[in-house]
Amino acid sequence: MKPPKFSYHRPGNYAEALDLLDQYGEDAKIMSGGQSLIPILNMRLSTPKHIIDLSRIDDLKGIRQEGNMIVIGGMTRHVEVENSDLIKKKCPLLFEAIRWVGHTQIRNRGTVGGSIAHADPSAELPCVLTALRGEIVIVSKEEEITVSPEEFFLSFLLTSLEPDQLIKEVRFPIIHESCGYAFEEVARRHGDFALVEAAAVIDVDETGRISEALIALGGANAVPFIPEEVERFLIGKKPDETILKEAAVMQLDDLDPEGDIHGSGEYRRHLSGILLEKALCRAADRAMEGVEI
């Protein structure tokens, strides 16, 4: 289990990185944290001629607020998100979800951009980004574009990222302080890839009715899934248990999870309903805190 031969490039800024991508494109793989790529190399499932290591590009690192967005540089590591007060305060859903990513050793190396680009349908960050209707900023030598998760995630481990492009940053919309939020996940063992996961944000108005609902399910389809009917259904409703229970299973038929040895498609669909119910209930409880009716 040793990586095959490759040429190694470590650009010092992203103009250089884009030049290298432009030059090697198809023959190159971008290395961000390497926590998914290096196992793939060790197993020789991929044999790229060139590895472009983005770890020394400081422009791609950091967490900042820009208007109503939290902007996270593509090369920002999970551990930095985990330890960020800004994230904790402004993006609590992400803060809650990030601890589900692998184990400490993985979060110390793995990056936000890397996780998004890897596009594992059961990964936590794509699910949260999708729920929050975030944005992915992609650059190439030619242009810089901003895409939605729906445009970006195409299928299982497949994204719209072209060989000459890289993820510059990922933008998570800030949810209003009054919003309730919850991230729920189940895995066979702690730290394993999720069987399924659910992310939910709920806001209520002064009458205690739901004014906003943002939801995504991960691991239940080839890409993170937004149950839009559920979101619409919830608006204007009081978040009591019956309503949330009903909402959670409304769109299970739209899910088509892949089965594997850890759980069949049918089982994952079943779990999706349970997790969504849990996430909705917890998010609603949080939203109702401080609302006096």
């Binding site: 990586p3 190694y8 470590r10 290395m31 390497g34 926590q35 290096i38 196992p39 060790n42 290591d53 770890s55 551990v79 400490t104 050793q105 993985i106 110390n108 190396r109």
Partner: peptide, 16 residues
Amino acid sequence: LVNGESVRSCLMLAVQ
């Protein structure tokens, strides 16, 4: 430990 943080050394290239 790499710069004080725990890391899996099989998932890192020496050059990194």
